[in-house]
Design a protein around this nucleic acid. Structure first.
Lengths: 159, 159
DNA sequence: CAGTATCCCAAGCGATACTG
DNA sequence: CAGTATCGCTTGGGATACTG
């Protein structure tokens, strides 16, 4: 693996010992803690909306896919809608809700992190600003809209 | 839940159907696909480094914690080191490697997303720039170092 | 195309107890 | 403090087959 394993700076942060159990990450973790959910969300971000398309992309058992789609709908990440193109029969599709779309931030961040740190693979997709088609990355942004390095961020107990 | 479930824009992205199986997210997903790993990483980001501290924070079975720490070390996210403060006995600690620290980007993104979208909870921790103590968020940044809205990003098949 | 109904198996989880 | 050794149990995963 293409990195050194030297310990790095951010662990000098003192143990702030916050109410660990129920921060948003804990809830998000519970939502994503299985083998397929993140990949289904990835499909949705890619613009795949149909059951069978997801099924054959992922090679996921139909029973499992049905179950996960239900969970994601129940949690407000996806909505199911039936639609009919003129002259066609009715089809179903799963589309991201507004919170679902915002999941692009952590998901793409994870993708970029994995591309960089988990085995050498060139990115399968490029992330661009749709206006100028120039590449984007995910990172920290301060209150002035300026980028901040990971090493410069700090976690503070709030309240 | 505090959001509408109206379908949102990003699903107009056409199905770009990339080599789905092995993007970085797929690998990251496999790394994180269990009930505890993300929470352990959260502990590490909080600055918790000792086995027993993690154990009692998370109420995780010792066997499981031991196993997950091994996996995270094997995957270059954590390193184990023994240290001894003057006059004390030897202790062990797990500290983030450089790739581990970079995981802060997706993990904090997930935390902020969860805080906002999964039940109403005020954030347990604040994320600040350590220089000015002003809050930061995670988001997309273009090649000029300017923020880009989620709705403006686009996934393009690369190569 | 979009699912549901079964059924079986393995992995993961968690409790308890023990060791260096 | 920092783990390992067992062990039972539950849950989730996956194959197969069927329905609207």
């Amino acid at each position: 693996m293409p990195y050194d394993d030297q310990p790095a700076a951010a662990s000098d942060v003192e143990n702030i010992n916050p109410p660990l159990d129920e921060c948003g990450m804990a809830k998000a973790a519970r939502l994503l803690e299985d083998r397929w959910t993140m990949l289904i969300i990835r499909e949705a971000l890619y613009g795949v909306t149909r059951f069978d398309a997801m099924q054959s992309d992922l090679h996921i058992p139909r029973t499992v896919l049905a179950d996960r789609l239900k969970r994601l709908c129940a949690n407000g990440i996806l909505t199911k809608r039936d639609y009919r193109e003129p002259g066609q029969r009715t089809r179903s599709q799963y589309v991201l809700t507004s919170p679902g779309v915002e999941l692009a931030v952590p998901m793409i961040a994870l993708m970029q992190w994995g591309d960089k740190n988990l085995g050498q693979n060139q990115p399968a997709v490029e992330i661009v600003d749709r206006h100028d088609e120039k590449p984007c990355r995910v990172g920290f942004i301060n209150f002035n809209g300026e980028p901040v390095n990971v090493g410069d961020i700090q976690l503070k107990k709030s309240g």
